[in-house]
Simulated scan of single mutants.
Amino acid sequence: MRDIRAAVHGGVLAISFLLMACSSSPTKDEADSGPDVPPDLRHVQEPVPRKEPRSRFGNPESYTVLGETYHVLDSAEGFSQRGIASWYGNKFHGKRTSSGEPYDMYKMTAAHKTLPIPVHVRVTNLDNGKSIIVRVNDRGPFKEGRIIDLSYAAAHKLGMTGTGTARVEISALTGDDDSTATNTNATGSSAGTAPRNTTTSAAGDEGLFFVQIASFRNEDSADEVAAQVQPLVGYPVKVFEADTDDGRVYRVRVGPLSRRDYAEKVRDHLEGKGYERPAIVGP
């Protein structure tokens, strides 16, 4: 089933449609999946509900998909809904969402047909009682009977990646502190270099493992490799700055990972992707 993402460009009402596939019910030509390496998602935090300005993108008054017209709500205040949730993952990782932000299947996000973008909602799995908070930044799903499309990480925490769909209840959440609001534009969160850790220790986090991919004297080279690796793994990719006898170096590492077997899987996966001799660093 194809989901169609709607966006408003440059303040001018011009809706462009991006075809998307619903990963929980793939067709032969539209298969989707989770990450190649089973991730440790304990580091993934739920977003904190807060008031945010409406995105410049993805909030037309109405839009039409597959012959049906949807009207975007003026407000999410008091909104609740029950129905079927699905999820989308690897196939769309890194592609633009309706808000203009890149889709990251390791973040707690979701797609909804009519809620204003962005907005935070609580999603409760009615089959197992698990509950999570996600940030809606995309449009869809447009398959009949489905009310929300969750990121891979959100679906995993809700216990529905194996089943593909689940009966859920969603309710909108609003933050009370206007001072925490930030503007969401076409590029999403502010761009910058890879996460930075300055350390002279072996791993940087006591009792945890990392997979070191490479070490550079040039900071830009390290940032470039970190950006290339991030979509391949379900863990943070960081650049560690360290002073050595030969000068400052920038080490690109995946982690932290709580178990050595996770590190071994990441190492083997990266070797299969063409990265030479990634090394496990840790206790």
Rank of each mutant, 00 (worst) to 15 (best):
Q230L: 06
I170D: 02
R146F: 13
E206V: 10
G204L: 08
G145N: 01
V168K: 04
A194M: 10
V211R: 10
G145A: 05
P195M: 07
V225A: 01
D243Q: 11
Y235N: 01
L232H: 09
G162K: 12
K157V: 01
R196V: 12
D177V: 12
D176H: 04
I148Y: 06
T180K: 11
Q228E: 14
G207C: 08
A214E: 14
Q212E: 13
L208E: 14
T200F: 12
A222R: 06
S179D: 15
G175W: 08
I213W: 07
E241T: 09
D149L: 07
A242Q: 09
D176P: 00
D205A: 06
L208Q: 15
F142L: 08
L150F: 04
S221M: 11
N183Y: 15
G164P: 06
N197L: 15
S221D: 15
D223V: 02
D245G: 04
S131P: 01
E206H: 04
A242I: 09
D177T: 15
F216G: 04
G247S: 05
G234N: 02
S189V: 07
T200A: 13
I147R: 10
D138S: 04
E224H: 04
L173M: 14
E144V: 13
L208C: 07
K157F: 03
T165W: 01
A194W: 09
I213L: 15
S201R: 12
Y152Q: 12
D178Q: 07
V136C: 03
S131N: 05
A154Q: 09
G234E: 02
E219A: 07
A155D: 11
V237N: 03
D245P: 00
S179H: 14
V237H: 01
N218V: 07
A214S: 15
L232T: 02
P141M: 04
S189E: 11
A186L: 14
S215T: 15
T180G: 03
R146Y: 14
R139T: 08
Y235H: 08
I213A: 07
N183L: 14
G234Q: 05
S215P: 00
G207A: 06
T193I: 02
D246W: 04
F216V: 06
K143H: 09
V237D: 02
E144F: 07
V134N: 04
G204D: 10
P195C: 08
A194K: 09
P141A: 01
D245C: 00
T161C: 14
P141W: 05
K238Y: 02
T244N: 02
P141K: 01
A202V: 09
D176Q: 09
Q212H: 13
P231G: 00
A194R: 03
A181Y: 10
A166P: 13
D205L: 06
D138K: 08
D243S: 08
A166K: 05
A154T: 08
G175P: 07
A186R: 12
A181E: 15
D149C: 13
L150H: 02
E206M: 00
S171Y: 08
T161F: 09
A154N: 08
A166M: 11
P231A: 03
R139L: 01
D205T: 13
E241I: 00
